[in-house]
């Protein structure tokens, strides 16, 4: 298990796939750990990508700073990892908290990237997300990691995913509970206490950017992704049908296919952002279709839009 060193802390990482291939770096969500990307690693390596996964500071087998974890340190850890990947084309993707770290990286080190894929992501903490974050933190404090998982699971995945595992939820939650510690998760959550919106800096992201958002994402709804689409010049927004916040867990084949196609299109010079809005296929390999013209993609009912 290789480690990088950031100050006095170690960051556990893993590299897979051919050394000289274009690389994907995948950044975990707040309660996640690197092994949750296994299906992505396998799918992307099969399509000739190199794949880097790691545990953020405070997660899994990486060190867990006892009192504070700053988001700047997470970006620095990510920068260290990217430094291990040579000079070839590099694509960066992250989900939720990991998406935010990826955005921060793209703002400060965008020239190193060939493409960016923020998923279930946000650049601001509007009142709903701020209060939800506070409530989740209180849940962690009062009920521990297991209770936080109990809150997140029904919010972030569908009935179709939950129904077959309903009688074995403890085993679904167990690995996340084992490798993540309350104080470390709390430190990760409290890294938002001095959070400043990234929105004014998003226009500095010059690389091709595909923003992925679940159709039914409750935690980070469409409006938060819309901020990214509007502010990032070379972006497009892709809506994943019937998906919730944690669609990377629920739809790995589809999402890995979208990641690979995005990178292949960018490398071939075919990709154009145009701030377009797309609807992803239901299954891997299907066609993306443009969001119907004249309708408002921010609404859940077919309202004729006023947004260009």
């Amino acid at each position: 298990m290789p480690f990088l060193t950031h100050g006095s802390y170690r960051i556990r990482y893993e590299l897979d796939g051919p050394a000289n291939a274009p690389a994907y770096v995948l950044v975990n969500g707040l309660t996640q750990y690197a092994e949750l990307w296994t299906a992505y690693r396998d799918a992307l390596v099969a399509r000739r990508f190199r794949v880097a996964t790691f545990d953020l500071l405070g997660q899994g087998a990486s060190d867990k700073p006892a009192l504070f974890i700053s988001q700047d340190d997470q970006v620095a850890a990510l920068h260290l990892l990217i430094g291990e990947l040579g000079d070839g084309p590099l694509f960066l993707s992250g989900i939720s908290f990991g998406g935010l770290i990826a955005l921060r990286y793209a703002i400060t080190h965008g020239k190193r990237l060939a493409g960016l894929v923020p998923m279930s992501c946000f650049a601001e903490l509007p009142p709903q997300l701020f209060l939800l974050g506070n409530a989740l933190r209180t849940g962690l404090i009062l009920g521990g990691t297991s209770y936080l998982q109990d809150l997140l699971l029904p919010m972030n995945v569908s009935d179709q995913w939950l129904r077959p595992v309903l009688d074995k939820l403890d085993s679904v939650k167990r690995q996340g509970w084992l490798v993540n510690d309350v104080y470390a998760l709390q430190n990760l959550m409290e890294s938002f206490l001095d959070f400043q919106p990234l929105t004014p800096q998003l226009s500095a992201i010059g690389v091709p950017t595909m923003i992925l958002n679940g159709e039914f994402d409750f935690l980070t709804p469409r409006a938060l992704h819309e901020t990214l689409r509007v502010q990032i010049p070379n972006s497009s927004l892709v809506i994943i049908p019937r998906a919730y916040h944690a669609f990377t867990l629920e739809k790995p084949a589809l999402t890995a296919d979208l990641l690979a196609r995005f990178a292949e299109d960018v490398l071939a010079g075919r990709w154009q952002g145009n701030k377009a809005v797309w609807i992803a296929p239901e299954e891997a390999g299907g066609d993306l279709v443009p969001f119907p013209a004249g309708y408002d993609h921010l609404r859940a009912i077919p309202v004729q839009g006023t947004i260009p």
């Binding site: 009192l67 504070f68 404090i141 009062l142 521990g144 309350v182 104080y183 709390q186 409290e190």
Partner: peptide, 12 residues
């Protein structure tokens, strides 16, 4: 994990 909260509040 509950008792810990007092130490976190104090130390931070």
């Amino acid at each position: 994990s509950r008792l810990l909260q007092a130490q976190i509040l104090f130390l931070k």
